[in-house]
Design a binder for these strands. Structure first.
Lengths: 340, 340
DNA sequence: TTGTAAGCGTTATCAT
DNA sequence: ATGATAACGCTTACAA
């Protein structure tokens, strides 16, 4: 017969409210759903009864009955990257305004974990915000196949059933490199990020394009973390370049620290650029030249798109958020140019 | 009659599996719950049927029937603080191992939001991890009163119904200050953090204690962010101190950047200490003297405690994680000591 | 406008 | 060891 008491020991239910107010449970449900078509008198009585009992709708029961949980999932490759927690923070805020809670998961850059966590999130969530997914398109399609809206950030996709919000990496990156060229650099090294990252591919593509214009471009595989940048300082110096373009701010910061430890001066001995404009970059010494994207704007666009999808809107929208380089003190002309 | 299809359009239910396997739904439920007492033969048939149909238990229905959601809430005052997202990241990991998902919320340092978000989280979650709560004890008790386990981090409490995990701020802070005293500093300034933060009170109390030993201690209200530290550089200089003890790494970094902009050298013109040992501190220039606590250890302890509570364990446990100062390059003897 | 009642997909009690 | 079935607390056709 009766299952255990799942609630907090005698928490009032919709039936108690209905009884006290002298109405049916349907009416109480309608009042709390805010649906029109309930008389002012009954609405008042329901509220009075609910207040008296301290009634709050049971969200899990609501979810089961309605098929909506008012939860969205958010999956990022690395919560320790300021780019992602900034996104999360903003989405948390916007979603909260609309009555949604956010289940967060971190794949730690693992495509396999990405798939599992994504599926697991979709068991509960009404929709999924997938940040910079590293998974193959087939896996993404599998996630979408669960029948719930999926919004992809930081990765361009052709799939018409997912909406995407991306930052325009290409243009800003080219401006950044042009800046280095204008300063007189003739040999730059690129610190590669995670291979499966779409952003990485975009950034590298933009830089690589400069080879055709006579810029010498060396490559050093690194990663997307401070540690990765710190680790590869030796390899960078071996290239003999005068400037480094890092995949992101984190690896740029790590590299700068390592160069500093070796007694090199930035930007005098080496110019360094990052990407993302994380808050710390502005306060580094020297402050970091980087590329800024309004993450608030991106996150708001993402939530707006997600909300549209949750309300039944058609997927496939593509939002592109503009990016622009921010020139600070970590870049200058190469020493040879000064003394030459 | 039938409500709408809440599921993804014809998703198999436990009944379909039972029918195909030729058993009752109760047996299917038992098999998936891993409960002993189902014959090997039926277990096999259930799994075969489930695989054939691609059946996965409906987590929301499970939640309603069992009263457990396998979700925990985690509420932090500021997701942009590395201290907190490190905690979240680790809890995400540990909780995930145990099959729990994590609902994250950010109160933005607002006690009112803390209460609302906490209550809202507890509607769904089996338990709540409350990080560095700024709310009054009464509010915390209200949250606990919802009948679900609450674990408080970064704040000491007397309440026997909540378990706590705190870092030992007092001892490490005193070592840090002693270090400054040993270096010859006679006048230090404290950059205050958020007034309602327990950690802030602990840190300040430890430093203030040095007044009795003849140390001159000035105070500047700041906050817990990079911007806060950056903003108050002028006030700091007006005190005439030779060293600054900041509430945390973030405000220390902000202050250092501001001092740098004014042409001051650290540590030559001013020693600066932080607190938390966030990853960036090691890679700053100069690297930041701070206090390290194993956040992995703290987070693991927190999850372990939470899991115990979720399994019905008695609350009230107090875990204290050790902290120790990390001396790096942002501290040195005062200039007057050198030239004097 | 309001009420009735059939689900939603499980779990867990009770009987066998 | 297995099955039948009443909850869990709500939403939403459908009837009135």
């Amino acid at each position: 017969m009766a299952a255990q008491r799942g609630n907090g020991g005698g928490r009032p239910t919709i039936r108690n409210v209905a009884a006290l107010a002298g109405v049916s449970v349907a009416t109480v449900s309608r009042v709390f759903a805010g649906s029109a078509g309930v008389s002012a008198e009954l609405t008042r009585r329901v509220h009075a009864a609910a207040d008296e009992l301290g009634y709050r709708p049971h969200v899990v029961a609501q979810s089961l009955a309605s098929g909506r949980s008012n939860i969205v999932g958010m999956l990022v490759p690395n919560l320790a990257n300021p780019h992602f927690y900034t996104l999360i923070k903003q989405v948390l805020h916007d979603a909260g305004r609309d009555g949604y809670q956010v289940l967060v998961a971190d794949s730690d850059e693992s495509p396999a974990a990405e798939r599992d966590l994504g599926l697991s999130l979709l068991e509960r969530a009404d929709g999924l915000v997938l940040c910079a997914p590293r998974s193959a398109p087939g896996v993404l399609r599998e996630l979408v196949g669960r029948g719930r809206p999926v919004l992809v950030m930081d990765r361009k996709l052709d799939d018409p059933v997912v909406s995407t919000v991306v930052m325009d990496a290409h243009g800003a990156m080219r401006e950044l490199v042009q800046h280095l060229v204008d300063l007189g650099h003739e040999h730059v090294t690129y610190l590669h990020g995670p291979a499966r990252s779409w952003q990485e591919q975009e950034r590298w593509r933009a830089l690589r394009g400069y080879r055709r214009r006579g810029l010498r471009v060396s490559e050093v595989p690194a990663g997307a973390t401070v540690e990765a940048g710190h680790r590869v300082a030796g390899q960078v110096l071996e290239t003999g370049c005068t400037a480094v373009v890092a995949h992101n701010d984190l690896s740029a910061i790590g590299l700068m620290a390592a160069l500093d430890e070796r007694g090199l001066r930035i930007p005098d001995d080496m110019s360094v650029t990052g990407y993302d404009d994380i808050p710390f970059g502005r306060f580094m010494s020297p402050s970091l030249t980087t590329v800024h994207t309004s993450q608030e704007e991106a996150a708001s666009a993402a939530w707006q798109a997600m909300r549209g999808l949750l309300e039944g809107g058609r997927p496939g929208a593509r939002t592109v958020v503009a990016s622009e380089p921010v020139f600070r003190r970590s870049t200058a002309g190469p020493r040879s140019a000064e003394s030459g």
